[in-house]
Simulated assay, not measured.
Amino acid sequence: KLRDSGQPCPCRGLSASENLIRWQKMLAGGYTEGGAVVRIKTDLKHPNPAVRDWPALRIVKAPHPRVGKKYPVWPLYNFSAGIDDHLMEVTHVIRGKEHEVNEERQRIMYEHFGWRYPTAVQYGRLSMPGVELSKTQTMEMIRSGRLSGFDDVRLATIAALRRRGFLSAAIRQMIFDIGLTPVDASLSWETLYAYNRKILDPIAGRYFFVANPVKLLVRGGPKLKEARLRLHPGKPEMGERVLPLSFENSSLVFYISRSDASVLKVGDTFRLKDLMNVKLESMDSVFGASFHSLEVMDVPKFQWVSGGAVVLEVIKPDASVETGLAEPSVAALKVGDIVQLERYGFVRIDSTIPKLTAIYAHR
């Protein structure tokens, strides 16, 4: 109450010798918790009451997890952080603007010691719509089991972004471009996607994946055993991958995604990407089609898989799982590999044993 009204407390005018006596009593455990506190003397007329005679050390009787009951007096945040910065010879302090008052407190302490305060830069809060960025709330959700950990795909922590396939270079460049500003900013996922895509697109291998597959039999097609496709359409030096073709009663067997199949009707001509054009003839439990031609036509293009396809589970950003079939080459990828599933999106391989799973990053 005295501090808030700008009035001195009764012990503020005590001599240095008396304060030292009381300090030794604190160290000896002669006060109860809350019975004494060390404060940093400041201007009682400071416009912000939080800066006036702020508390620096207090008494804690509870055992410390490392040193037990060895010390009864412990520093509070501003004393501890301020002293640490000096002892570690910190030259620049970069922290959220909510610490502006803490900087004022620490500067006064540095003046008392005759130290030079580091260069300090405050920045505004960076938020993302629909994402919990609060460390306190995140910890609570992890403890309650609502999140699996700090790398849960529903989070925007560095661990979660890494697990989804966001490159550190993309995050770093985005932060550089945003810059340090005290103004609160809202960052969209699309912005982050664009930075990551710019780096990934030239280096990520391409693969076919069909979600919720539908079987397609094509009669009359060429008797091919495999298709050889570039790993990256613009970089032949990256090599090729092989897609085996399988047959059933002399018909070529393919699988296309249910979403692609849902837009078709009997009589439609479409292209199995990078392979052939076919004409749909039936839509029973198994789709039936006939071979049309090989040359590229102005018709819808669909991803496909055939012989040796492997089951792949893709974990989406909302933690839902989409299951489908991927071309055989995907089975040879390693945990941590980031690839593009064509017309689906970039994914990062998350596990290969006991099953093949990937985390969806973005389109």
Score class of each variant (00 low, 15 high):
3 R>D: 05
13 G>V: 01
16 A>K: 12
17 S>E: 15
18 E>F: 01
22 R>E: 02
24 Q>H: 15
25 K>A: 12
26 M>C: 11
27 L>M: 13
32 T>G: 11
37 V>L: 14
40 I>R: 00
47 P>E: 11
49 P>W: 11
49 P>K: 13
53 D>F: 10
60 V>D: 09
62 A>K: 15
71 Y>V: 07
73 V>C: 10
84 D>R: 07
87 L>G: 03
89 E>V: 08
91 T>A: 13
92 H>M: 10
111 E>W: 02
124 G>H: 07
127 S>T: 14
128 M>C: 07
129 P>K: 12
135 K>A: 14
139 M>C: 04
141 M>D: 08
146 R>I: 01
154 R>Q: 14
157 T>K: 05
159 A>M: 10
165 G>Y: 00
172 R>Q: 12
173 Q>P: 03
175 I>G: 04
178 I>D: 00
183 V>P: 00
192 L>E: 06
194 A>C: 05
194 A>T: 12
205 G>K: 07
214 V>E: 04
225 K>S: 13
226 E>W: 00
229 L>Y: 03
234 G>H: 09
235 K>H: 15
240 E>P: 00
243 L>P: 00
249 N>H: 10
252 L>A: 10
260 D>K: 04
264 L>D: 01
267 G>V: 05
268 D>E: 03
270 F>T: 01
272 L>C: 06
272 L>Y: 00
280 L>R: 04
284 D>H: 10
298 D>M: 07
301 K>G: 00
312 L>P: 01
314 V>L: 06
314 V>S: 02
316 K>P: 01
318 D>W: 11
323 T>Y: 04
324 G>K: 09
329 S>A: 15
335 V>T: 14
357 T>M: 08
360 Y>G: 05
